[in-house]
Design a binder for these strands. Structure first.
Ligand SMILES: [Mn+2]
Ligand SMILES: [Mn+2]
Ligand SMILES: [Zn+2]
Ligand SMILES: [Zn+2]
Lengths: 134, 134
DNA sequence: TTTCAAATGCAAATCATTTGCAAAAAATTA
DNA sequence: TAATTTTTTGCAAATGATTTGCATTTGAAA
């Protein structure tokens, strides 16, 4: 697990934080705080849910983690920034990450039209996955 | 308030539902259930919060309304589908709707690459608004 | 090591959202 | 229109994800 992440200044690198980040690095898609909790437990690492929530919040504030809500679900999800754009199947709920999100190409256009300096974006695309079509 | 909306079959067109839809039609950006509640109250229309939640859920299920979460806020937001793509200022929180979302152009590309039949999408773009830059 | 602010775990609190149920209102029928 | 049927509403209570208080532990600086 070679963590390519630069841990934010001013925070202590605790074993809990290392473990939470490792779970997020290994996750394929955005996951809930509870998902993190149980995946840690599978690895014999017991961290309290409140510690997980506190650290996920911190990591979001520092920009290492993105928080989002998946359509139809009521719990917040967390993921590394490269997993913030995804397709979701309206039939089975499957999530597929969009790599090289085409939306990046529109940063400049958006800046021109709306005057914002764009720093990021997240996209949720709804549809029907190949499995559910057949 | 000429409601261009076709009210879904199988539901009764109550005065509460008309009023809630009118608030959403007049809203500039996605708003919370509580926002709906207080805007109705300003118009001397008292509808219980639970009725608002129940109807917003129904309208979402029927596709007339889109539910989303704005970055950094903890309450669900609701809007008509033409307001589901927006820019948000990371500094002041201002939200600006994106008209003619450029993402539409990528439906076909996404279908080719991921095999999904695309039915919709929502985009949240983060940035700094013109006011906050100066 | 010693020191001490920061972080954790646990239990309790919060609060956005959901739900049960009796009363009210919409659609249907006569 | 009036009666009938079914849906919807309002209110209060419950739920459950997330947050918080506080005593204890721990990371890292000196
Ligand atoms: Mn909250
Ligand atoms: Mn819930
Ligand atoms: Zn599917
Ligand atoms: Zn701003």
């Amino acid at each position: 697990m070679s963590s390519k992440l630069k841990f934010p200044e001013g925070y202590r690198l605790t074993k809990q934080r290392k473990a939470i980040l490792e779970i997020l690095e290994n996750a394929e898609i955005p996951i809930t705080a509870e998902d993190v909790f149980f995946r840690l437990k599978e690895n014999k690492i017991n961290i309290s849910l409140s510690t997980i929530y506190r650290n996920l919040e911190m990591l979001c504030k520092e920009g290492l983690v993105i928080k989002s809500y998946v359509m139809g679900k009521d719990k917040a999800r967390f993921a590394l920034p490269d997993k913030k754009n995804y397709l979701i199947c309206e039939s089975c709920g499957k999530i597929v990450i969009i790599d090289n999100c085409p939306f990046d190409k529109f940063k400049e256009e958006l800046k021109q039209v709306y005057g914002f300096d764009i720093t990021g974006h997240s996209v949720e695309v709804y549809g029907i996955c190949p499995d559910c079509k057949s």
